Deep mutational scan, measured.
Amino acid sequence: IRCIGVSNRDFVEGMSGGTWVDVVLEHGGCVTVMAQDKPTVDIELVTTTVSNMAEVRSYCYEASISDMASDSRCPTQGEAYLDKQSDTQYVCKRTLVDRGWGNGCGLFGKGSLVTCAKFTCSKKMTGKSIQPENLEYRIMLSVHGSQHSGMIVNDTGYETDENRAKVEVTPNSPRAEATLGGFGSLGLDCEPRTGLDFSDLYYLTMNNKHWLVHKEWFHDIPLPWHAGADTGTPHWNNKEALVEFKDAHAKRQTVVVLGSQEGAVHTALAGALEAEMDGAKGKLFSGHLKCRLKMDKLRLKGVSYSLCTAAFTFTKVPAETLHGTVTVEVQYAGTDGPCKIPVQMAVDMQTLTPVGRLITANPVITESTENSKMMLELDPPFGDSYIVIGVGDKKITHHWHRSGSTIGKAFEATVRGAKRMAVLGDTAWDFGSVGGVFNSLGKGIHQIFGAAFKSLFGGMSWFSQILIGTLLVWLGLNTKNGSISLTCLALGGVMIFLSTAVSA
């Protein structure tokens, strides 16, 4: 259960009878995928790494000078000259100064003066180019299975845990398959586009800190620079940016070097996208990844198990997540596992009318040892309800109150669905055939309105939902006002479609 501690969480529900669903994975976010007769899966884009970055340009932001020398000439005696002028490691300046009897010249006039100092770069920052084909995306998957609280967001041991898996995709191999043991396998067909235009970005490294910066900004930095990788004795261009020549006297000129420019660069980098280094690879934390999940090989585990009949206890007080759902960790005293956990939410304890829904599909106890633990997640209705676990006299209950409203949740879900469709863009549509167009249209309606429909009408039977949709269509056909007619027709059509397409 990876997503319960992530604030940016998206719930995606598969269409009834569908074998695939489109998701948008982004750094700092987590996606929970639910479908009829399929286990619930949490998917998170953990890291995006980039390798084989080529150094484009380096800037010196802290330097020192040494070996200063000057040469001067009297008027009419030609130009002052130093051998160091031809050495690229030196920074030199030529000027004219007033000369006369007082400073060793027989004539009054302008004399030539040249001053040089050896330039040494102490600290530099480097910009590297990123090729999209060198990106690698690491995705962690977790099935809502027989897990306890100690396994949440624990990325170790996934090789031997059938509840978890790690997959890596690249532009050259965008397809992967996550093996989930008894739950089958989940196929991923990803489109490795981060949403960032790397043709316009460089990877900047300064003092063990890293950013993504725009090329134009990078090339306009007014500091000494050299092109390409460091060859040991780089040729620094624009050395004068960190060196200041003071007022010249008759035979000498003082040279000083400016202080470190790291603070000024940090100020200019305010708002830039931060990154990290992992050995020789860069780690990015921006952008998104679009994936199509193929769920035809994914299956529920323990459908044929019998119900657990022994007593359950709450190991922890049920807690609310950031998303309005409830996490419950229970301990089973029996030894008759594997068995299914009898769990439901009810409005009252007399009729036990089921409300809400299970995020953890078909929760089971897989071990036959005593005191096995299991964590599950529920989506309670707004208002008061009861969490009921167990059967008969051994069942345990917990009162729950959820604040908020169904309308607010439906609106929030619609906005999130619209954002998801905007990110998917043209990849969500198939114009290759008439059937493809209608299929894409259905998927689009489901992406945007599916979660809201589930919130508003999830407790009704599909037949009642179709009746309401048919009534809206009838009202649309018999209303003389054009805008009201079109609105009723659209709402009725969407409702009829979703009542037959969205899983219960």
Rank of each mutant, 00 (worst) to 15 (best):
D22C: 05
A178H: 04
V473E: 02
A319H: 02
T500H: 13
M495F: 04
E191C: 10
M68D: 03
W217K: 08
G356Y: 06
E136P: 00
G435C: 01
T267H: 12
G182C: 11
N52L: 00
Q85L: 10
H235D: 02
T115I: 11
I484N: 04
S64Q: 11
A280I: 01
T160G: 00
G390T: 04
T427P: 01
G390H: 06
T315F: 02
V153W: 14
S185E: 05
N439C: 14
V167Y: 03
E44V: 06
F312M: 11
A241P: 01
H214S: 02
F463M: 12
D37E: 12
K409Q: 14
H266V: 13
D42L: 02
G392C: 01
D87Q: 09
D393I: 03
A418Q: 08
A63K: 10
H398P: 00
T327W: 15
I496Y: 11
G14R: 00
A280Y: 14
F285D: 09
V502T: 10
V256W: 14
Q261A: 08
A117C: 02
D37S: 11
V12Y: 07
W236N: 06
H27T: 13
H214G: 03
A428I: 03
G459R: 15
M277F: 13
P171N: 10
Y203F: 11
F497Y: 14
K166S: 15
V213H: 08
D247Q: 14
W429M: 10
T267V: 02
G187Q: 10
L486Y: 03
T500N: 06
T369G: 13
S142A: 15
V265G: 12
G469R: 00
D426Q: 13
Q147V: 00
V50A: 15
S483V: 01
L284F: 15
T470Q: 01
S51L: 06
R416F: 07
Y386F: 15
V12G: 04
T397G: 11
A319N: 04
R94V: 12
G228Y: 08
A272W: 12
H235K: 03
D200M: 11
L475K: 10
P342A: 14
C74S: 08
A319Y: 05
Q447G: 14
K294V: 03
S51I: 05
F198I: 11
W462S: 08
A311H: 05
L300A: 03
V391A: 05
M34W: 08
G279A: 14
S72W: 06
R73Y: 09
L186Y: 03
L289Q: 04
K419N: 00
T48W: 10
A63N: 08
M374Q: 03
G195Q: 06
K443S: 14
N439T: 09
I152M: 03
G436Q: 01
G404D: 12
M295C: 12
G450A: 06
A80F: 11
M374L: 15
D83F: 00
P318C: 04
H398K: 00
F463Y: 14
Q344T: 11
S405C: 07
A268H: 12
F431L: 14
V388I: 13
L322K: 04
V91G: 01
K340Q: 03
P75I: 05
F108T: 02
S483A: 09
M53K: 03
G334F: 04
P171K: 05
E136H: 00
K246N: 06
L25A: 03
V434N: 09
N52W: 10
K166L: 08
E177R: 04
D161S: 13
D393T: 04
K480H: 13
N439W: 02
K283V: 04
T470M: 13
V41G: 00
I152E: 03
D247M: 15
I65K: 07
D430A: 06
L491R: 09
M206S: 03
K294M: 09
E367T: 02
F119K: 06
M421I: 10
D247Y: 04
V33F: 05
R175W: 11
T414A: 12
L141Y: 06
I496T: 05
T500S: 15
T397Y: 06
G417Y: 08
G337S: 10
H288S: 02
D278I: 15
R94D: 10
R138W: 05
A410V: 13
Q89L: 13
H401G: 01
Y305E: 03
Y332H: 12
S70V: 14
T32L: 00
H323E: 07
G287L: 00
G324S: 13
L113A: 00
R292D: 01
E133D: 11
M277N: 14
S368P: 14
Q447H: 12
G432I: 00
P174R: 02
I65S: 01
C30L: 01
S499T: 14
W429T: 01
E370M: 13
C105T: 03
M421C: 06
A69I: 12
M345N: 02
G111E: 10
K118A: 13
Y90A: 08
V347Y: 10
E55F: 00
A272D: 12
Q344Y: 01
G334Y: 08
G271M: 11
G28N: 07
G106W: 06
L188I: 15
S306T: 07
K480I: 03
Q344N: 12
R357E: 05
P354I: 05
T487A: 15
M460H: 12
I389S: 05
A361F: 09
N371D: 12
A250D: 03
C60Y: 13
A270Q: 14
Q36M: 14
M206Y: 03
L269P: 13
N52Q: 15
W20V: 03
V257W: 11
T254K: 03
I445L: 15
T179H: 10
L456I: 14
T47Q: 02
E159N: 02
G279C: 01
P39H: 03
T427N: 04
D200E: 15
V343H: 02
T325G: 09
I389F: 10
H401D: 11
I407M: 12
I466G: 01
D71R: 02
G259I: 06
T470P: 00
